[in-house]
């Protein structure tokens, strides 16, 4: 039971929650850039939670389902057509064998997720099916998906109430994308980094008052931010230390770099900030050319926000599971 890639789109790869626990070996986590969107796509098709989905970037792929499947799309809005019929996002859709799903360009945002019931069941590497494009780990040595790739679908029981369909079926209910998809350019919460205090006065202000533009050199490893250059009061000689997704580094150019899902595990640039975890998916949805600005947050505020979002997400996941159980 396979999904075959007809056209790969701009940059499509399999992603799950990533591979935590291997940073001491130099292996980063990778995983979905917009974790809530990935998680909700899996929930909508009744997956248990850790299954791999296709992460699409700016322009989605076209795929053919060789067997009937249950799918869901979440994340940035994009044109989706199943054998010529429009398919909405944030809902469940049953597709008959032989159907072709064509995903177009995203109107806003940068990343969408295509989940399938059972998950894409490629061989896990170090406990994850995530493609780490930078470290070349995952399906086909972590390269992006290509035309002709055959992705096996994992085995899963059929959902209650729906069997052996011959025509496409779209569930009558869908999720409100808010607050899970937020493409506004509202400031991202940023914690002061270990070396924030070493910025000169203007740069300390500029980090929170200035506007940056996400450069086209950005990828899953890092978002490069162009703007008024920031400067340290005096140059720092640093030894390499841990870096994380969300770490804002300042290379000598003065243009900050926000590390993302494929962040290297160590780095030697000054760390001037840390993007609050709750706002990392929002950063992941910025596209090259979009504005990025920051507002200051404390660790306590960021931790409280993260815990609140996690409770809200867990509640929604439970409600979705309940509706699927009821055959809705």
């Amino acid at each position: 039971m396979n999904v075959r890639i007809l056209q790969p789109g701009l940059l499509s790869s399999l992603q799950d929650a990533g591979r935590p626990g291997h940073a001491a070996l130099g292996v980063g986590r990778a995983g979905a850039m917009d974790i809530p969107a990935w998680r909700l796509a899996n929930a909508l098709v009744g997956n248990r939670g850790g299954e791999a989905a296709i992460e699409c970037t700016l322009l989605g792929p076209s795929v053919v389902f060789e067997e009937a499947a249950t799918i869901a799309l979440t994340g940035a809005p994009l044109r989706a057509q199943l054998d010529g019929r429009a398919v909405p996002l944030w809902t469940r859709c049953h597709v008959p064998a032989g159907s072709v799903l064509r995903l177009g360009g995203m109107t806003v945002g940068c990343r969408s997720y295509l989940a399938v019931r059972g998950g894409f069941d490629v061989a896990p590497i170090l406990g994850s099916r995530s493609s780490d494009l930078h470290a070349r780990l995952g399906y086909q040595q972590g390269r992006p998906l290509r035309a002709g790739d055959e992705l096996p679908i994992g085995v899963a029981d059929p959902l209650p109430g729906r069997h052996a369909i011959k025509t496409p079926y779209i569930a009558p209910w869908s999720l409100d994308p808010q607050p899970w998809f937020d493409f506004t350019e509202a400031p991202l919460a940023l914690l002061r980094g270990s070396h924030w205090s070493r910025l000169d006065r203007d740069s300390q202000r500029g980090l929170f008052a200035g506007k940056f533009v996400l450069s086209k050199d950005s990828n899953r490893t890092a978002g490069r931010l162009d703007g008024q250059p920031l400067h340290l009061e005096t140059a720092l000689e640093l030894v390499s230390e841990a870096t994380l997704p969300g770490t804002l580094q300042l290379p000598p150019s003065g243009q900050p770099i926000a590390l993302l899902a494929e962040a290297p595990v160590t780095g030697g640039y000054p760390r001037i900030g840390q993007v609050a975890a709750t706002d990392l998916p929002r950063l992941a949805q910025r596209r090259p050319g979009d504005t990025v600005c920051f507002r200051e947050s404390t660790l306590e505020q960021a931790s409280a926000r993260l815990a609140a979002r996690q409770r809200r997400l867990n509640l929604l996941l439970e409600r979705i599971a309940q509706r699927l159980q009821n055959g809705e």
């Binding site: 935590p20 626990g21 940073a23 001491a24 030894v239 390499s240 230390e241 841990a242 815990a307 996690q310």
Partner: peptide, 20 residues
Amino acid sequence: LECVPAYASVLLRFDPAAWA
């Protein structure tokens, strides 16, 4: 805890919900 040694420091990564 996930412990990641570097030259002069150790990164400690944890599940905030489990350690609240």
